[in-house]
Design a protein around this nucleic acid. Structure first.
Length: 915
RNA sequence: AGGCGGAUAGCUCAAUUGGGAGAGCGCUGCCCUUACAAGGCAGAGGUCACAGGUUCGAUCCCUGUUCCGCCUACCA
């Protein structure tokens, strides 16, 4: 084949665009259940349909693609199943913003048209991230792209909901839930982010009913909720208060009196005054206390977290105050209430107090504990098998350290609130008969949504019932709530494979092989997939869960748009190339650490790509015509050595891939190619290649080509584009590297003898080069080196290396016993067993060389400044023959015993002086 | 508050049956040597967070302390 014209530097852009198109067009990523290989399947964590590729995706997807491409090359029946998530609240927010900009709103559009509008939006913008994924080279089976709201998945969702309901694992009930007053929906516990803030602790006096001069002081961080108090709790064994239990206090600012109850669970005698106000409708602990004592629940907020007129009336709030706070946000009401209390002389004190605030994970609004009827999954019965599956190893969490995290959370799991009061999502398959429920189905929200009170009786079914089983009525309304987005994601590993149908895909690829995900969604998603998979498939959804780190910026800060520290992977790919980004992310994926990403790192691996590129250019200068005949096998030491090292690298890379150590795998590839293949092997074979008449020429070229080709296959999962591009220019079988076999170790490539020889060689060259720098010999100057070795066998070996030593050492070599070395003007250096003498032939002052060394050390090493003086005074090297140096060896030994004086320079001095 | 993880070169991180401390980037010096200056060669730089303990010997094992991160729960 002809020598391809390769540019001097690698330009990723054109290469990447071309190959990602070809790969997809040729269908290399398409999976078939009938493929003979062992199935290997990964379902992608579906990115939000609103999303665009951020660096977290880039890491997550790079790792999956490495695994997938590796297994594909190993001959597995590979399926990487892509998809997107409908992301309920997030998507609804995006489209609502759009509507707002158009001067309209969700409410004025109405539910049906709003949903249509979102679907339109999805058609237009929903594939942004998919095209970006293709740009990253992700080898997904794009023909199988799924969406959590597509027809098949929606069917699976309904099926699961109905079956869980029939099994008594889904129920509807009024509970205190986390409520986002901006999104106007319930959130599950884990959708609330906690943030520590500096708050205030207010102490308020509640006068005793019988004797208002006696006051019970309660402390609260949220004084505005006192209007909804329905009791005060004290510890039943607290001598200060226990006689008051059963009596009542007047609730200030209202006309109510509330009982004093004893509650050992709620009250910590040591904290504050030991008396606690109970607001069952607005605090989780108080809600439970309220249940224990059968207390009424008074809701004083509306769903926007404003002071609610009905609630305030029920709370019998003083008329004057009522007027001031009605419909005011809680925070405003707080100031007014504090002022009023102060005037009444009931505010005892205000202290600073650290507390944490719950915020909506989507919009960061402060969430409100809120009493409302919601749907829940009774989770304990589902959690138990999911705990067992991890305990007995059917699912392996990597790194293992997260296992306890998972188990701890699962053992303490709370029922899952699955209903959301938004429109975009899977609407709950529950209907209410208007005839039966006529008296309770009374109201609608301003947007026309039905408000279904807690007493309403739902009929859960896959489709709307024809007749009410109770009364025979035919008029139904559907529950307006939709399901938590994570409900559909929980089914992802089997719903995407066709469940509830028994498809060949489901049979072949379930359980999937590995799940790759960040720690942040271990509970949101992974735990729930395990529970649902076990429940509906009777088997785990995946064998391994590989948890990777969070990507942070170079300072360790979370990347966020507001901080302006976001590294945009698309920009980086543009600047440094996709392969460089992928390789960087893989190299930093050490377990147990967050990734601090700086652009310089990516630049470093861009250079690596360029190094590979140029090594290929070098090879092409000599490779033309190699395949035309059957060249002899290379028996020379550089070839045997590099093949042995390549073999070693193959072994390491495969081992590290098997244990998900992408960092070590990339290190091995980098180290091998740059520092063994390029730095030594290519340099070693240059004279053979450049000599067109060299007898070893064709054998050497053959080895060069073969090792390069194997390396490219080894590299391909990590750097798919450049490996394909170069591989195509080499003689090869098949039309793409994508489907070539992954390299295997070969026992006959392993060559300890060649490796030993190389070690000896490297030692010598190292000494030659050190001597050259120390003596300030210009690169072109030919130097006379004397070489010997303690080990006679090594001397024999060295004799065979003479040509190579001359070439890389740029000097004449004399392999003679030390007794036959010149008696003067020889600088002697020692390392390992090798001794090298450099003839200085009178034109170089050894003293100057030593000065240079000492100066160099002194510049950076304070310890050796003291050493400098000592050395100068000793004057122990001066064109000295070896014998004279020997005279000083004892003194050096004495010096080196004193570790305070000889630190890092010790080794260097030893080498210099032959100690 | 509880749980988990971390602390090693200027920065980011490696280093397993306990023994000799490494890489990349950055830095210094020399070199545009015909694949690559996005390069080559040679270097400098570490009381392995602190204090004890076990051991012939500890970066590693044990105890405690300090600092940082994350998760969970929250003190009204």
């Amino acid at each position: 084949m002809s020598t391809p014209q390769l540019d001097k530097t690698y330009d990723p852009k054109a290469v990447e665009a071309r190959w990602s198109q070809v790969w997809n067009q040729q269908g290399y990523f398409h999976a078939s259940p009938t493929h003979p290989g062992q199935p290997y399947c990964i379902v992608i964590p579906p990115p939000n349909v609103t999303g665009s590729l951020h660096v977290g995706h880039a890491l997550n997807h790079s790792i999956q693609d490495i695994l997938i491409r590796w297994r594909r090359m190993q001959g597995h029946n590979v399926l990487w199943l892509p998809g997107t998530d409908h992301a309920g609240i997030a998507t609804q927010n995006v489209v609502e913003k759009q509507l707002m900009a158009e001067g309209t709103s969700r409410e004025s559009l109405g539910r049906e048209r709003f949903i249509e509008r979102i679907w339109q939006w999805k058609t237009t913008f929903g594939n942004t991230i998919v095209s970006q994924q293709k740009q990253l080279g992700e080898s997904c089976d794009w023909d199988r792209l799924r969406f959590t709201m597509d027809e098949g998945l929606s069917k699976a969702v309904v099926e699961v909901f109905v079956r869980l309901y029939e099994d008594g694992l889904i129920y509807r009930g009024e509970r205190l839930i986390n409520w986002c007053p901006r999104c106007l929906t319930a959130l599950s516990d884990i959708e609330v982010e906690h943030e520590e803030i500096k708050g205030k602790l207010y102490s308020i006096d509640y006068p005793l009913e019988q004797d208002p001069t006696i006051r019970l002081t309660v402390a609260t961080t949220r004084p505005e909720t006192m209007l909804g108090d329905t009791a005060v709790a004290v510890h039943p064994e607290d001598p200060r208060y226990n006689e008051l239990i059963g009596k009542h206090v007047r609730l200030p600012l209202t006309s109510r009196t509330i009982p004093i109850v004893g509650d050992a669970i709620l009250v910590d005698r040591e904290f504050g005054t030991g008396a606690v106000k109970i607001t069952p409708a607005h605090d989780f602990n108080d809600f439970e206390a309220g249940e224990r004592h059968n207390l009424p629940r008074i809701k004083i907020f509306d769903d926007h977290a404003r002071m609610d007129s009905g609630g305030l009336t029920e709370a019998t709030v003083d008329q004057g105050l009522m007027g001031k706070i009605l419909l005011r946000p809680a925070r405003d009401a707080r100031a007014i209430i504090i002022e009023t209390l102060q005037q009444a002389g009931l505010l005892l004190k205000i202290e600073d107090h650290k507390m944490s605030l719950g915020k909506c994970y989507r919009c960061k609004t402060v969430v409100e504990p809120y009493l409302s009827p919601q749907w829940f999954v009774k989770i304990k019965p589902l959690a138990e098998p999911a705990i067992k599956a991890v305990e007995d190893g059917r699912i392996r969490i990597v790194p293992e350290a997260w296992t306890n995290n998972y188990l701890g959370w699962m053992r303490d799991i709370k029922d899952w609130c699955i209903s959301r009061q938004i429109w975009w999502g899977h609407q709950i398959p529950a209907w209410y008969c208007r005839t039966c429920n006529d008296t309770v189905l009374i109201s609608t929200k301003p947007d026309g949504t039905w408000i279904i009170p807690r007493e309403a009786r739902p009929i859960v079914a896959k489709t709307q019932p024809q007749l009410c089983p109770v009364c025979g009525g035919k008029d139904f309304i559907r529950d307006p709530d939709v399901l938590d987005t994570w409900f559909s994601s929980a089914l992802w590993p089997f719903s995407t494979l066709g469940w509830p149908e028994h498809t060949p895909e489901l049979k072949t690829y379930y359980p999937t092989s590995t799940l790759v995900t960040g720690l942040d969604i271990l509970f949101f998603w992974v735990a729930r997939m395990i529970m649902m998979g076990l429940k509906f498939m009777g088997d785990v959804p995946f064998r391994d869960v590989y948890i990777h780190a969070l990507v942070r910026d170079a300072e360790g800060q979370k990347m966020s748009k507001s901080k302006g520290n976001v590294i945009d992977p698309l920009h980086v790919m543009e600047q440094f190339g996709t392969d460089a980004l992928r390789f960087t992310l893989a190299s930093m994926a050490s377990p147990g650490r967050d990734i601090k990403l700086a652009e310089e790192r990516i630049e470093g691996y861009r250079n690596f790509a360029n190094k590979i590129w140029n090594a290929a250019r070098f090879a092409h200068m000599y490779l033309a015509g190699v395949e035309e005949s059957r060249p002899p096998i290379d028996r020379s030491f550089p070839g045997l050595w590099i093949r042995s090292r390549l073999n070693n690298t193959i072994q390491i890379v495969i081992m590290e891939l098997e244990t998900y150590r992408f960092d070590r795998a990339t290190n091995a590839l980098y180290q091998f190619f740059w520092h063994e293949y390029c730095d030594w092997y290519l340099e070693l074979i240059k004279p053979v290649l450049q000599d067109t008449m060299h007898p070893q020429g064709s054998a050497t070229r053959r080895m060069l080509q073969e090792t390069l080709e194997v390396f490219l296959r080894l590299l391909h999962p990590f750097m798919p584009f450049i490996s394909e591009e170069i591989w195509q220019t080499l003689p090869h079988n098949g039309e793409t590297i994508v489907t070539q076999p992954y390299p295997l170790t070969q026992t006959d490539w392993h060559d300890p003898s060649a490796e030993e020889t190389f070690h000896l060689f490297e030692q010598n060259i190292g000494l030659f080069r050190t001597a050259r720098v120390l003596l300030n010999f210009p690169p072109g100057k030919e130097v006379r080196f004397f070489v010997t070795h303690e080990d006679p066998a090594a001397i024999v070996r060295l004799a065979t290396l003479e040509q190579d030593l001359v070439h890389l050492g740029r000097g004449r070599i004399s392999l003679v016993p030390i007794s036959r070395w010149p008696t003067s003007n020889v600088l002697r250096l020692v390392t390992g067993g090798v001794t090298v003498g450099v003839s200085v032939e009178g034109d170089v002052d050894l003293n100057k060389a030593l000065d240079r060394l000492v100066k160099q050390i002194a510049e950076t090493d304070k310890e050796s400044q003291r050493l400098e003086g000592k050395l100068k005074n000793t004057d122990f090297v001066s064109k000295a023959p070896p014998e004279v140096i020997t005279d000083h060896q004892d003194r050096l030994r004495a010096l080196s015993r004193d570790r305070t004086m000889l630190t890092s320079s010790e080794q260097q001095l030893r080498a210099m002086l032959g100690v």
